[in-house]
Measured scan of single mutants.
Amino acid sequence: RDEDEKEKIKEALKRGNEDKAKEIAKRANVSPEEYERLRKEAE
């Protein structure tokens, strides 16, 4: 379940949809550090 959320965040970031990614991260309680890591992976 947690991994699904992280995949959704990465997908949103790949599409350049940072607002959606942040919204998912907030809902999934993803830490800022984890969010940054996902953002780097998505580049």
Score class of each variant (00 low, 15 high):
R1P: 14
R1M: 13
R1V: 14
R1H: 14
R1S: 14
R1L: 13
R1G: 14
R1D: 14
D2V: 14
E3N: 11
E3V: 08
E3K: 10
D4L: 13
D4R: 12
D4E: 12
D4S: 13
D4P: 08
D4K: 11
D4N: 11
E5W: 15
E5K: 07
E5I: 15
K6W: 15
K6P: 04
K6E: 06
K6H: 14
K6S: 09
K6V: 10
K6L: 15
K6R: 15
E7W: 15
E7R: 14
E7V: 12
E7H: 12
E7P: 04
E7S: 12
E7D: 11
K8D: 06
K8L: 14
K8V: 05
K8T: 06
K8Y: 06
K8E: 10
I9W: 01
I9V: 06
I9G: 01
K10A: 03
K10W: 04
K10M: 07
E11K: 07
E11A: 10
E11C: 05
A12D: 02
A12I: 03
A12R: 00
A12V: 03
A12L: 12
A12N: 05
L13R: 00
L13I: 11
L13V: 04
K14P: 00
K14L: 10
K14Q: 07
K14I: 10
R15N: 15
R15T: 12
R15D: 13
R15S: 15
R15H: 14
R15V: 13
R15K: 12
R15M: 15
G16C: 05
G16D: 03
G16P: 01
N17Y: 10
N17L: 14
N17V: 03
N17C: 07
N17Q: 15
N17E: 15
N17I: 03
E18M: 09
E18K: 07
E18T: 11
E18D: 08
D19A: 15
D19E: 15
D19N: 11
D19G: 11
K20E: 15
K20D: 11
K20T: 11
A21I: 01
A21L: 01
A21C: 01
A21Q: 00
K22G: 04
K22T: 06
K22I: 10
E23T: 05
E23Q: 08
E23Y: 05
E23D: 09
E23V: 05
I24D: 03
I24C: 04
I24R: 02
A25Y: 02
A25T: 02
A25C: 04
A25K: 02
K26H: 11
K26N: 10
K26D: 13
K26P: 00
R27E: 12
R27M: 13
R27C: 07
R27N: 14
A28W: 10
A28K: 04
A28V: 08
A28T: 07
A28Y: 15
A28M: 10
N29E: 09
N29R: 06
N29W: 03
N29I: 01
N29V: 02
N29S: 07
V30H: 01
V30R: 01
V30N: 01
V30Y: 07
V30E: 01
V30K: 02
S31P: 10
S31E: 06
S31N: 08
S31G: 12
S31F: 03
P32H: 10
P32S: 10
P32W: 13
P32N: 10
E33T: 08
E33K: 07
E33Y: 06
E33W: 07
E33D: 10
E33V: 07
E33S: 08
E34Y: 03
E34T: 05
E34R: 00
E34I: 05
E34M: 05
E34W: 02
E34P: 00
Y35F: 15
Y35K: 00
Y35S: 01
Y35I: 04
Y35E: 01
Y35N: 00
Y35M: 08
Y35P: 00
E36F: 04
E36W: 03
R37Q: 12
R37I: 11
R37Y: 08
R37L: 10
R37G: 06
L38I: 10
L38Y: 05
L38C: 02
L38Q: 01
R39P: 01
R39L: 08
R39H: 05
R39S: 08
K40D: 09
K40T: 11
K40Y: 12
E41W: 05
E41K: 03
E41I: 06
E41V: 05
E41N: 04
A42W: 06
A42G: 03
A42R: 02
E43K: 09
E43W: 13
E43G: 08
E43Y: 14
E43N: 10
